[in-house]
Structures are given as structure tokens and as C-alpha cells.
Design a protein around this nucleic acid. Structure first.
Lengths: 161, 161
DNA sequence: GCCCTTTCTTGAATGAGTCAAGACAGCCGT
DNA sequence: ACGGCTGTCTTGACTCATTCAAGAAAGGGC
């Protein structure tokens, strides 16, 4: 994996103060792809055991507002974050287990930014979410005798909106 | 506007019982485009003053599961619903006021259903959200002297996830 | 180093959405 | 038509991700 970008400089460039908490949050986002807030808190506390959840919430919001992170929130699941890498990728979300996977832009360029009729909107971003079943879950539901007593344990637990 | 479709029959076809509450919810979804749950409750209670919010929540979930309604939930705003009309349209969301507008599929067909790499997923739907500013909000932020003391009153209030 | 300002800690509040148990009402069979 | 079975609705309490508020702490320009 490439070494992490210069986060302190990125924060400074965004006009934000460089704090240990924010750096830890960004490291956590790099480590955990599509992490929910709770996971971020967990990883951040591995380095800074005393961080408050409030600091993490605030950092995530600040980083998102500054364009350094991106917030995604598929229907019915809790908020997830990823570092914004500048490319134009979208997401595959499994309807069964909720897993999220990156996909490159469907056509290779950014045609998806062009709506057929913009209704007067000034569009700055197109967000695409592909819904379906991940390989594991589609395999589960394929065989009739596959015996999967609880195919969506975490999903049910996460149902907070 | 065209007369509403045969909701009772649609419910029956979906294997659901036909109840006044569900019909009222579907009527409300037709009347209110992209309605949040609270609005739906309000409209439903105009006809059936005694409905419980629980019945509306349950109806919305049931209708969504049956494919008669569709749930959309742009980042950071609360859940919204629309009747599923069978066409392949997407949404424009204003970053400032949160307004949602329908757009037809970008290319006229459903190419957006084709991810460049499906990562083994069985994809059944592609959801596209275009982010930007609606005509009113972009007009507000255009002129320097436009004087808009509170450009996002409702948005701030809605910030529940 | 100092001071100003932003950010973090602490702790409580908010409120959309969920759960549970009993009352009620579609709908099927007779 | 009517009764009963079963799926829905009412009622009311609860959950918990996220936000709010106020004071303490720590960046960073001078």
C-alpha cells in the first residue's frame, strides 16, 4: 500500500488546525474502508484511548465539510465515511449483509455527472449506489439446502436511521 | 393528473391485505412527492385522524418491501418515500435546502445499471443521486448583495440521521 | 512564551425509528 | 352471510446514533 498522504499539510491547506485527534481519525479512515462512526472511534482509541466520541463526530463532520472525507449512508444504515481519494468511484452495497465495495465509475469518465435534464440545478457531484447481493450472500441464497439460519445478523442490529 | 392506479389490486397482487391505512399512505405518497415520514403521517391523518404513527411506519416498510414504494435517504437527511412508478428515474438533491427533484435516467436506457466491475455482486438496482444547488438556492448564493440571512432554515432542522 | 481562537471533554438531551402486547379487522371457507 | 384464523393496527414505552452546551485544553501566529 502506498504510504499515507501528508495529512497535516492537507488539514493546514483546508484552513484547519492539526490535532492528534483529527490525524488519528484520518488514519482510521485509511485503515477501515467505509467505516461507521463506532468503528472509527474504536480504532482512534487504540492510539488515543481518551478521545471522546464527540471529538470523532466533530472531526468526521469537519473533514467531510473540508472535502477530505466523504460520507456515505445507504438507505437504512448508519453513516459511513471514507477518505476522499479524488477519483470518481461509486459503491456496491449488499442488500443482505450491508457490505460496501468500491467500483470505478461505470463508463470510465464522468458521464454520470450529466443528468438528462438538470432542472436548473447546479450539479457538482453524482453519487451512484449499486444495490444487490455480495458474492457470499448470493451464494447463500442460491442453494435450497444451504442452511443459513441467520444470514443478516449485523444488518438487523444496525437498523438505525 | 392521471387517476390513481388501482391500489387495492396492487396490494392484493403483492399478497398484502387491503386496509384503509395502507391505501391512505399510498394516496399520500402520490400527493406528496418525496415525502418524509412525518409529512405522510400528516396527510394520512387528514383522512384517518386516528392512525398511529406506527401504522404509517409499518405501512411504509411493507410497501417498500413489496416494491410498491421506494425509500430514498440522501446523506444526512431523514427517510423519504415515493411511489415506485416503474420507470428508471433518479434524483437531484439540493445541498442547501434539501429539495428533491426527479430526473430521468441519464442516458435514456438503463446503462447505469452496468457497473464497470461488479466484484461478483448480483446487482439489481442502480441508484443515482445528483448533488448540487436548486435554482432558488443557486440564485441566492450568486449575487454578493443578495442578502439571504438564513438560506437553510429547514435543512438545519432536519439534520437527523 | 503569550494570547486568542478553535477544538476537545464531559455529560445530558434529542427524536426518528423500533419493539411488544393486546385489540381489531381483512379475507377465506363453509 | 357469518365465524374464525391470521395479519394489521393501536398504544405506549424504549433505543441509541447523533447533537447540544459549557467549560477546559491545546494549536499557532505574534
Amino acid at each position: 500500500m502506498t504510504s499515507s498522504p501528508d495529512f497535516p499539510q492537507m488539514l493546514r491547506d483546508a484552513g484547519l488546525r492539526v490535532t492528534r485527534q483529527r490525524l488519528a481519525v484520518m488514519d482510521a479512515l485509511v485503515e477501515l474502508a467505509h467505516a461507521d462512526t463506532e468503528s472509527v472511534i474504536g480504532v482512534v482509541r487504540r492510539d488515543l484511548p481518551e478521545v471522546s466520541h464527540q471529538a470523532v463526530y466533530d472531526s468526521l463532520r469537519t473533514l467531510t465539510a473540508a472535502g477530505l472525507a466523504r460520507r456515505i449512508q445507504p438507505n437504512g444504515s448508519l453513516a459511513r465515511y471514507e477518505v476522499r481519494v479524488g477519483d470518481n468511484h461509486h459503491h456496491l452495497v449488499c442488500r443482505s449483509c450491508g457490505e460496501i465495495t468500491d467500483v470505478d465509475c461505470a463508463v470510465g469518465e464522468i458521464p454520470c455527472l450529466t443528468a438528462s435534464d438538470d432542472h436548473g440545478y447546479v450539479i457538482d457531484e453524482a453519487e451512484v449506489i449499486y444495490w444487490g447481493l455480495c458474492p457470499a450472500c448470493s451464494a447463500d441464497s442460491a442453494g435450497p439446502e444451504t442452511n443459513h439460519p441467520d444470514p443478516t445478523p449485523r444488518q438487523e442490529k444496525q437498523r438505525r436511521v
